[in-house]
Simulated assay, not measured.
Amino acid sequence: MTGAGDDDPQRETPAEDPSRPEAGSASLQARLTTARDDFENRVDRAREQIDATNARIMKRTGRDLFAAIGVGVIAGAAVIGSLLFLKWVFAILALAIAGLGVFEITRALQARGRRIDLVPQLVAVVIIISAAFWFHSAVHWTALFLALAFIVVWRVVAQMSGSDGRVYASIFTDIIVGCFISIYVPFLASSALVLLRHEGGEWWILAFLLVVVAADTGAYATGLAFGRHKMAPRISPGKTWEGFAGGAVVSLIAGALAGEFMLGIPWWAGAIFAAPLVLSAMMGDLGESMIKRDLGIKDMSSWLPGHGGVLDRLDSILPSAVVALAMFQLLAPLGAS
């Protein structure tokens, strides 16, 4: 006969002893699962916030900020590495980048009905960039004139062979625009390679790139946060005077630091070095925006995520390379004194 207490449904099961190994393992696993779920929830919330912020920035600026940062980091690493360790690699990079820029603007102009010949344009890139880095300055200028003459002769011969009925004014305009491309892209870019040939030139290139990037980034961030007054709404609606002021302040600070720690010149000379670069970067940016507006396009291409085309990233750098070369001639003696 069984006792009544043995089958009592109300009897409580004894509590599991936490000192038992299997109980401790289950408790640890439960804590780990909870911690993992909490971490995943935090990551999901952070991702949603980042995506929402990026969406707001894209709505206002038309750029994917995080894609732009990724491309910028990769490009910056390639440029810095080649400048500091293998200068000839930087020259090859400059040659390739200038060639892509010329290809972009040539295709854009051709789409608008201009007769621009791609082959002589690319030949001009090779001639001008190569002469700037591997030959004497006199050869560099000779290469420019030879490249322009080649472009002119090619267009005249092509026009005579084509006989498409274009009037002389249009032919002359095609020639002028073709020569402008070679001056605007490879010749301005070649100024950086002329600077690179000088002793310590790689540091001056890094300094001017730092100042220009600081001006662009500072203007972007300041304009995004405080921009109210449009600088040139008919040319570039997104640019504001507040953004320009913020970019100028950031770039002057960057120039002073670069002068003191990179170029071996006084901090105030570094600020002087940066001041004209701020203006050249702004004018280059507005100049390319004016070209794109005249062509009826937003970007030269879509090759660089978050940036647009190659020329969309070179717009402020190209004219600044000439200014940097001039400022080097002016300020470099201060480093030797």
Rank of each mutant, 00 (worst) to 15 (best):
328 F>L: 04
314 L>R: 03
108 A>G: 11
96 A>E: 00
105 I>P: 02
226 F>D: 10
337 S>K: 08
132 A>W: 00
315 D>Q: 12
198 H>V: 07
53 T>V: 00
187 F>D: 02
228 R>H: 14
159 Q>F: 03
256 A>S: 14
110 Q>S: 15
236 S>Y: 09
218 G>P: 07
118 L>N: 15
225 A>N: 09
56 R>V: 03
96 A>V: 10
166 R>S: 00
93 L>Y: 11
334 L>S: 07
109 L>M: 15
10 Q>W: 14
296 G>Q: 09
5 G>E: 12
103 F>S: 13
223 G>F: 04
74 I>V: 15
261 F>T: 15
125 V>C: 10
88 W>L: 01
32 L>Y: 14
83 L>P: 03
306 G>M: 01
241 W>P: 04
102 V>T: 12
123 V>N: 11
67 A>L: 08
57 I>G: 00
237 P>I: 03
19 S>N: 14
335 G>Y: 11
178 G>Q: 10
265 I>H: 14
208 F>G: 04
104 E>F: 11
254 A>C: 01
242 E>K: 01
258 A>H: 10
219 A>K: 08
109 L>T: 13
224 L>D: 09
311 L>A: 05
134 W>K: 00
172 F>R: 00
77 A>Q: 06
234 R>N: 10
46 A>F: 13
44 D>W: 14
308 G>Y: 10
265 I>R: 12
208 F>Q: 03
178 G>R: 05
145 F>W: 11
123 V>Y: 13
293 R>M: 06
95 L>C: 13
155 R>A: 07
256 A>L: 02
84 L>E: 15
103 F>I: 13
254 A>H: 02
121 Q>V: 03
238 G>A: 14
54 N>E: 13
295 L>W: 11
280 S>T: 12
300 M>F: 15
322 V>P: 00
91 A>D: 02
129 I>D: 02
69 I>D: 05
69 I>R: 07
